[in-house]
Write a protein that binds this DNA or RNA. Structure first.
Lengths: 356, 356
DNA sequence: CTGAAAGCGCTTACAG
DNA sequence: CTGAAAGCGCTTACAG
């Protein structure tokens, strides 16, 4: 009972070697599963290891080999189902390949993302999958690349950074959703995003949307509207729907304007949920008064009345592909960097009606 | 361009020391922030480190110090909002204390949980927070404790394991929810869980519910019903609502029985969502025909028609407390192991009506 | 097939 | 305040 608090020293290769009466090197060979050992010796070592409850110290192993068997994943918001689904896709392929995953949450903040990168590189992850919170500021990502850490971008791209990326076909998706609304007769369509902005602020410059996926969607939206003869669609691209309160303000302002929209496209499922609630609060009926389409096939979209039509992104598959790409790089693949853009589809439910 | 593919050797303390023309030891002192160094030397070293873009190798650091600055978290299902919220609570306090978090997903499978534990201990995490998938099989957890790794149980307890635990007051919560239903005149109330079981299988033995939180809720439910004169409440405790399809079967069977329930208590928000969908599919109106209460204040419960009344568990706070407890243990706290059971509250929305 | 030595990049006593 | 040496627990050549 004397060293009740002292962390028991863990048993090492040396301990096992002594117990098995062999050299450290041989014990290490069977414990580490490399080199060749006679069956007799192997059995002795295995028995000793079992007896002592030997557990390899992966840290030491990583120090020697230079590989950690771990990949780091930095997501914008782990509470967002979009990201947790992606993380599962990533984890599934990583685990199958014998890799572990360290997850870090940036909260969409650049500084948090930067320190997460430092930390993960410090822990010598074998590779990194990151959702850049700001596609315009990426010195920390360039550094990672320069240091030689394989990197795959997820959901967003940074064209001037020569790395692999896996995203949805955001521009096409937004165009398809917009056209669907147009075909139902809508001309005044609003696009709502949580990206920073004052209530009422609309899209005038790319610099307002540092997230490439959102920018792509907005551009697709504007292009589709423009093709339909609407030239000031950007005025209906509204920022600042960061939480319920702000979304309420954004939506009620929008609906009180002279050219109030008859349909709303929500940039992601969090915004979509907030928009749906705002509409409920304002007593605006969906789809009779306002039609709604949200990005991402989230749980909640299926149980509302009416259920909400969505842009279905193959998020799990995106996660899988990002991980596969990364593992290939870790494995030394030198194929040219590619940007995989996965097609999305529209799921028609009850939130879109003909514009009267 | 010669070693384009070879991972550039990273810069070490020795490199910085040479560049700064000091000994490895002094360079290490300023880089590691320990010991004392003259300002002049410090500046020289810092300049050299900046010049070379030195990044400490946390692995080596951990090897020397025996601490990794990392805690491991094993959850049942990271895609469940309950767990991702808890993870945020944990991460928030961990980060503040300078710790990193490695998240592993057990998928509620014992074998996955066991290998995750091995792996995390192998990586020498300083402590572990785990949601045991089976409160009856915990050799792997006992091992962790024996090896000296601080462990805090989350959401579930294992009475015979002497470790800290943070859970909701599940028994009380279930009793309160049941009483609320009783006060609305309901006598035939069903409790539905995803725990393994054939469609139609009901609760007869504790061994069917290896998750202590679920067992506690079921016992609270039965006790409340019993106090109201219902002695066969256990027959209305139904297992097997593992996915939408099975839930559909469970619910339609339940409603076709002679003593069909007039109210349903859902064991968690995933089950709750599935039950809500089943009811919709069957054309059963909530709350006119069947009242519903779900555990966990999930997003979707606020946007359905009617919105769903829920047992609100302080999940984020539970996560925070678990992390604080763990950090205290890592810090050497020797206070007796405690089980923190956090009170829940009922949020009344529109899914409960008087029983006709 | 097995062993002794060196090394991964740090930190920790121990001297000066 | 600074330096030289040993050690953390493995793996990697190099010999026998």
């Amino acid at each position: 009972m004397e060293n009740i608090a002292s962390p028991k020293r863990s048993v090492t290769v040396a301990d096992v070697a002594k117990a098995a009466a062999v050299s450290k090197a041989t014990a290490a060979r069977v414990l580490g599963g490399y080199g060749t050992v006679s069956d007799k010796v192997r059995d002795k070592v295995i028995a000793a290891a079992a007896e002592l409850e030997y557990r390899p110290n992966e840290l030491a192993r990583s120090m020697s080999t230079g590989k950690s068997g771990t990949i780091g994943v930095i997501v914008g918001d782990i509470e967002n189902a979009f990201f947790s689904l992606a993380v599962r896709g990533i984890s599934d392929v990583a685990r199958t390949a014998g890799f572990n995953v360290i997850i870090a949450n940036s909260g969409e903040e650049l500084s948090a993302e930067q320190s997460a990168i430092d930390l993960l590189i410090g822990r010598r992850v074998d590779g990194l999958i990151v959702t850049p919170s700001n596609c315009g500021e990426y010195d920390h990502l360039s550094n990672a690349v320069r240091v030689g850490v394989p990197l795959v971008l997820f959901d967003r791209t940074i064209p001037s950074l020569k790395v692999d990326a896996v995203t949805g076909a955001d521009r096409d998706a937004a165009m398809a959703a917009t056209r669907h609304l147009q075909e139902a007769g809508h001309r005044r369509i609003a696009y709502v995003t949580a990206r920073e902005g004052a209530v009422g602020e609309f899209f005038t410059s790319e610099s307002q949307l540092p997230t490439s996926s959102v920018l792509q969607r907005v551009q697709g939206f504007i292009e589709a509207q423009s093709a339909n003869g609407i030239d000031d669609a950007h005025r209906h691209v509204r920022l600042g729907a960061s939480d319920q309160e702000h979304t309420d303000a954004v939506i009620s302002l929008l609906l009180s304007e002279p050219a109030a929209p008859t349909a709303i496209l929500a940039s992601d499922s969090l915004v979509g949920l907030q928009v749906f609630r705002s509409l409920q609060t304002l007593g605006v009926s969906v789809p009779e008064q306002v039609s709604v389409i949200s990005f991402f096939n989230a749980d909640w979209t299926t149980v509302t009345s009416p259920p909400v039509s969505v842009v279905d992104q193959p998020v799990y598959e995106m996660g899988r592909l990002a991980a596969e790409r990364l593992l290939a790089r870790i494995d030394g693949s030198e194929t040219p960097e590619t940007h995989l853009s996965l097609a999305t589809s529209l799921i028609h439910r009850g939130s879109v009606a003909r514009c009267k």
